[in-house]
Amino acid sequence: MLSSIVSLSLIGFVSASVLFVASKKFKVYEDPKIDQVEKLLPGANCGGCGFAGCRNFAEAVVKAGKLEGLNCPVGGSAMMIEVGKVIGIEVLASEPLIAVLRCNGTKANAVAKINYDGASNCVVAHALFSGESGCPNGCVGLGDCVKVCQFDALYMDEQTGLPVVDEEKCVACGACVKACPRCLYELRPKGPNGTRVYVACMNTQKGVVAKKNCNVACIACMKCVKVTDSKSVSVTNQLSYIDTNVNAREHGPALIGCCPTGAILGVKIAGIKSVKSESNS
């Protein structure tokens, strides 16, 4: 009885001291800030920041000691300010972003001339042919973006055949931007009170060719440049691009009104019918 008590306590004592020595000798110092930052992060491990997960992002933030080039789009600017406080720097609030689909080739606008019944995957279809309407830059409508969205912010509109971005749910993680083989998504500022204006077309063909495939293609007529200025709107490669800094409230109605094909779309702009996709939010 006694011998077993003694021997067990002896083993316990020896083991404890080994553990104590090991913990002192092999201690790896880890900045407690990493844990603090990680607690603030959403914990979705979505990869929107460019790192494998939230922990890796927290490590990178603490190691760098600054936030240049580091941003968690999911948490938004409010959270990034908190993160800044932890690592001891002041962060200015940035504008919230949203994913915007730069194609309006709906089933009605870009009529299908051929019928594709192959594998339901955008990359496969993109490698095979230019698309059912013939537009080599337009949405093929097979929903790779919907599959990669972890926030349920995208769904396929059966009627138009185009994916729709849910304004409430989109956190601008950029997964759809990477997934789209035709680079149709862009992360643009949500704009003051959600007003924004953009060119919903990526077709770089000449106007005549582009118009054959899609009614609402940008034909690079330069009208949008004339109603504003060349800084706000630029036309390169037969395609117009509206700068993200353009004030949608001020220039929106003129820009949308001047476009002869209707390639320029606006959201929440007075007097103009909003895009179907975002009007419900």
Binding site: G118, V123, V124, A127
Partner: peptide, 13 residues
């Protein structure tokens, strides 16, 4: 199954 379609995708990537 569209085996070849996806294998082509794999080859591409």
């Amino acid at each position: 199954l569209p085996l070849l379609d996806y294998m082509r995708l794999g080859k591409l990537e």
